[in-house]
C-alpha cells in the first residue's frame, strides 16, 4: 500500500475520530442534515406515488374509438387490423350489443333503453397505449380519427394534461425545495467544518511548519464533510422509510374505500442511494469551501 492510500486511510479514520469525539454535536448535525434531506426526498416519493396512482387509474390512459353506426363487420375487421399494426399496447373491442347491455345494467337506464326502437350505440374499441404521454395520446387520437368508418375518437386529454401539469408543478416545487435544502446542507457542513478547523488551528499551524502540504491538512476535513453528508443522507432514508411505514396502513385503508389496492411504495434502488451520494457530495462541497476560506485566513 503506497503512502497516498495510507494517508487517505489515516485521514478517513481521523475524520471518524473527530466526529466521535463530539457525539452530541455530530448527532445534532446529522439530524439537521437528515431532516433537510427528508423533506425534498419525501416530496419526490409522494410525486412518484401520485404518478403511479395516475397511471393505474383506468380511463386516464384510454382512447375510445367509435365506429360509424351500422358499420359492416368487414369495416370493423379492417380497423381492428390497423389498430393491431399501429398500437403498442392493449386494446379491446366492445360490440354495440355489449355496450347496450352495459348501459342497461346502469341504474335507472334500463327503462330508457327499453323505450328505444333500436340500439343507437356504435361498435367501439377501447385502446390502452403503452406510452400514455399526452403528446403520444394526442398523436394517436389524430391518426385513428383518419381511419375510414371511424366516427369519433375520444381522448380524455384534458384530464391527462391537468394531471401532468400538476405533476410538473409538483416536481418543480420539490426541485426548488431540494435546491434550498441543498444550500442549507452546504451551509451546515460549512459551519461544522469551520468550527473543526478553528479547534484544530494549533495542529494545522504545527503541521504546516513541519512539512504538511495543504492537501494533507484538508483531507480529514473533506472526509468529515463527506461522512456527515452521507450519514445525514442515511438518516434521511431512515426517516423517509419510517414515515412510509407509519402512513401506509392508513393509505391502504383509504384506498380500499375507493376499491383500489394502492399502497405507498418506497423509492427504487437508484433513488434510494441518491440521498447518500448527494449528501456526501454536498458535504464535501461545504467542507471544501470552509477549509479553503479558513486556511486562507490562517495564512
Amino acid at each position: 500500500m503506497n503512502a497516498w492510500f495510507r494517508q487517505h486511510f489515516a485521514a478517513f479514520f481521523r475524520a471518524i475520530r473527530r466526529l466521535a469525539a463530539a457525539p452530541l454535536n455530530t448527532l445534532l448535525s446529522l439530524l439537521v442534515i437528515g431532516i433537510a434531506m427528508t423533506l425534498p426526498a419525501a416530496g419526490y416519493v409522494f410525486l412518484d406515488n401520485i404518478r403511479t396512482l395516475g397511471a393505474n387509474h383506468t380511463g386516464i390512459q384510454q382512447i375510445s374509438l367509435f365506429m360509424q353506426t351500422g358499420s359492416s363487420a368487414q369495416a370493423v375487421a379492417a380497423v381492428r387490423e390497423r389498430i393491431d399494426e399501429r398500437l403498442p399496447g392493449q386494446w379491446r373491442f366492445v360490440p354495440r350489443d355489449e355496450a347496450l347491455q352495459q348501459l342497461k345494467n346502469t341504474e335507472g337506464m334500463a327503462e330508457i333503453i327499453a323505450a328505444l326502437p333500436k340500439n343507437p350505440l356504435p361498435d367501439a374499441f377501447i385502446l390502452e397505449p403503452d406510452d400514455a404521454s399526452p403528446e403520444n395520446m394526442e398523436s394517436l387520437r389524430a391518426e385513428f380519427a383518419d381511419f375510414s368508418d371511424v366516427a369519433h375518437v375520444q381522448l380524455d386529454s384534458a384530464w391527462i394534461k391537468r394531471f401532468n401539469a400538476f405533476l410538473r408543478l409538483g416536481v418543480q416545487t420539490v426541485n426548488l425545495l431540494a435546491l434550498v435544502f441543498a444550500v442549507g446542507l452546504v451551509a451546515v457542513t460549512f459551519n461544522t467544518i469551520r468550527l473543526q478547523v478553528l479547534a484544530q488551528a494549533e495542529e494545522i499551524e504545527v503541521a504546516r511548519l513541519i512539512g504538511a502540504t495543504d492537501a494533507f491538512i484538508r483531507r480529514p476535513f473533506y472526509y468529515s464533510g463527506i461522512l456527515q453528508g452521507a450519514l445525514g443522507g442515511l438518516a434521511a432514508l431512515f426517516l423517509l422509510l419510517s414515515g412510509l411505514a407509519i402512513l401506509n396502513p392508513s393509505v391502504t385503508q383509504l384506498a380500499a374505500l375507493y376499491g383500489s389496492d394502492f399502497t405507498l411504495h418506497p423509492p427504487g434502488f437508484v433513488y434510494f442511494s441518491l440521498p447518500v451520494i448527494l449528501g456526501a457530495f454536498l458535504g464535501w462541497l461545504g467542507a471544501q469551501l470552509s477549509v479553503s476560506l479558513a486556511l486562507r485566513h490562517m495564512q
Binding site: 500500500m1 495510507r6 504545527v206 511548519l209
Partner: peptide, 29 residues
C-alpha cells in the same frame, strides 16, 4: 524545527506528537 515555545500538541501524548512528521510523509504506522 525547534520553536521557542515548542509548539507541542497538548491534546495528544508524547508518542503521537513525535509521530506527526512521519504521518505527514505517509510512513507505515
Amino acid at each position: 524545527l525547534v520553536f521557542q515555545n515548542q509548539k507541542l500538541l497538548f491534546d495528544r501524548p508524547a508518542l503521537e506528537n513525535v509521530l506527526l512528521p512521519l504521518e505527514i510523509i505517509g510512513l507505515p504506522l
